[in-house]
């Protein structure tokens, strides 16, 4: 099936000279939930803003359901709803009026029955005559969602939808997104919470420093990201990993003082990650330690870490720049005493 959004060689350099997007190519599949994952300032909002017409691209093109967003902006934009990150609302308008306003803006004739259902679905019906300035932050967020859905878009962009949102609203929002997906709406959300991407998305794109680092089905990515690593502080530096230990895919740290072993917890087969991932699977740590002893390699300390999302970003970025050199990880607590 042809993609509903097709982004090719999209770049954006702001007037300040800041390069927010660097030649991004991305296809969004029809009817999927796509999570754009990245730290703050990675370019997520810029990417969305270009597709929605809020920012001019410096180079490249975007097609929405086959319509170029510049030449054929009417057809393209009519298909898209956007929930911005900031709570930007007209203070003096009522909920009903502001949602109806957006529907008109997107070229749709009034449909009070649809708006009523929409407000009910978003638990806003009781507040329909309330002025926006009287609403809480969570309610305003709901209003922005209602506005974005007021013209029955086929594509919904949610920019950091759960930033500063309470648990209840977050749950409601996730349910809503699933309902939308079931009705055939394509949803693209940006987030810097990996849990959110994990909970919601069919596919995940990781973006950092303006570059799309990878795009992967969620299941595949979670395998990659979910790995742990064992770091051994060596008693004496090694020049290279002994051939006898090759099957573990160990990576030697800087100066040969540390050895890093990556593995998956509770997984029968190894992850598909890059260098240093575990080829042997569960229970291999015991074997590794025995083999190290047999090879005469002593270590003074060891710890295991679960990679956090931030580290994954850092490592993905540095892997691009210099393959296999990144060994950073937060200390998750000592996993054992020195073995000497």
């Amino acid at each position: 099936m042809d993609p509903i959004i097709s982004i090719s060689a999209l770049s954006k350099t702001y007037a300040s000279g800041f390069s927010a997007l660097k030649t991004v190519d991305l296809d969004i599949r029809r009817g999927e939930i796509f999570a754009l994952l990245g730290p703050n300032g990675a370019g997520k909002t810029t990417l969305i803003s270009i597709v929605c017409g809020l920012v001019n691209a410096s180079a490249g093109s975007v097609r929405v359901d086959g319509h170029d967003i510049v030449r054929d902006y009417r057809a393209a934009r009519a298909l898209v709803g956007l929930v911005p990150q900031e709570l930007t609302t007209d203070a003096f308008e009522t909920v009903w009026n502001t949602v109806s306003f957006t529907r008109g803006l997107f070229g749709k004739p009034p449909d009070p029955a649809y708006i009523e259902q929409l407000l009910k679905d978003l638990s806003l019906w009781a507040k329909k005559d309330a002025r926006l300035m009287m609403l809480s932050g969570g309610m305003k967020r709901r209003v922005l969602i209602a506005k974005a859905l007021s013209h029955e878009p086929r594509i919904l962009f949610l920019d950091e939808p759960t930033a500063g949102v309470d648990v209840e609203l977050r749950r409601d929002m996730w349910q809503l997104v699933r309902r939308l997906r079931d009705s055939g709406v394509t949803v693209i959300l940006t987030t810097h919470y990996i849990e959110e991407a994990e909970e919601m998305a069919d596919r995940i794109g990781v973006i950092a420093k303006g570059a799309l680092i990878l795009v992967e089905d969620k299941a595949v990515l979670m395998t990659k990201l979910g790995g742990k690593q064992l770091t051994l502080q060596l008693a004496a530096p090694l020049a290279e990993v002994p051939p006898a230990l090759a099957r573990y895919g160990l990576v030697l740290g800087k100066g040969g003082k540390t050895l890093v072993y990556r593995y998956e917890v509770g997984r029968g087969e190894g992850g598909e990650g890059g260098e240093g991932s575990d080829p042997a699977g569960d229970g291999a740590i015991a074997g590794l330690l025995q083999d190290l002893a047999a090879a005469g390699i002593m270590f003074t300390d060891l710890h295991t870490t679960q990679r956090s999302l931030e580290e994954i970003f850092v490592s993905l970025v540095s892997e691009r720049e210099a393959p296999g050199t990144d060994e950073r990880g937060n200390r998750a607590g000592p996993a054992g005493e020195g073995a000497r």
Binding site: G53, L54, Y73, R74, A75, R77, V80, P84, L105, K147
Partner: peptide, 16 residues
């Protein structure tokens, strides 16, 4: 709308 940032709506709408 520029000041309150609600202009995003106008800019993202299919209006000439």
């Amino acid at each position: 709308p520029k000041f309150s940032r609600t202009i995003y709506e106008i800019l993202s709408a299919p209006v000439s």
